[in-house]
Design a protein around this nucleic acid. Structure first.
Lengths: 91, 91
DNA sequence: TAAAGTAGTTACCTTTTAGTAACTTCATAA
DNA sequence: TTATGAAGTTACTAAAAGGTAACTACTTTA
């Protein structure tokens, strides 16, 4: 399951929760991806300086603008997949 | 410039022409990508058994279905880029 | 006779990306 | 006093992806 999908579906999430739901990548890569997404303004990182720390991630307005285009691609892939041809989204 | 973009814009193209227009990847990787795209039904490969051989590539109907969603993503990235934030399409 | 052309293929090397496991800080709980 | 917790960081290793350069076949051109 993809990071942007999960954040779009669930709203703001703690790192640990994201980590449990995102599969296919290690926590280290998840952190790297989230930092990249933050850098390009697609994701907010909210840091609460507690101990242990509480960090949550949430889509920015810009990130939300991706929902529709990405949903359209997913829809297309689903229609193709139901025709039993491997979806482009594998690539 | 991306393979799907070029094929969408120009219609069927010979390998050599594609090779000149696609930048950022080697001919070897271009061939690999085209073969993958052919495998998943996004691109037709037309082989003419002349010497030297003439091979052209063209988007299938399915490949054309990608135009709109990808155009929408590009449009979004352009709007973001004009706001001077690095576009997500870098990733 | 040699060179040119097309569209690759292949072996080897380089670069990039990812995974693993140990580690970090410090308040709180046991 | 020790363990726990979150959210990473880091060094090292492994895997994946990409680039390079030599090569292929055979007709046509010079």
């Amino acid at each position: 399951m993809y990071i942007l999908w999960i954040l779009d579906t669930n709203g703001a999430m703690r790192f640990g929760e994201l980590r449990r739901q995102v599969d296919g990548i290690s926590p280290k890569v998840l952190t790297q991806r989230l930092r990249m997404l933050e850098e390009i303004g697609i994701v907010y990182r909210h840091y609460k300086p507690t101990v242990p720390p509480q960090v949550s991630y949430e889509l920015t307005e810009r990130g939300k603008e991706l929902s529709k285009p990405l949903y359209n691609l997913c829809d297309l892939a689903s229609r193709w997949y139901s025709d039993e041809i491997p979806p482009a989204s594998q690539y």
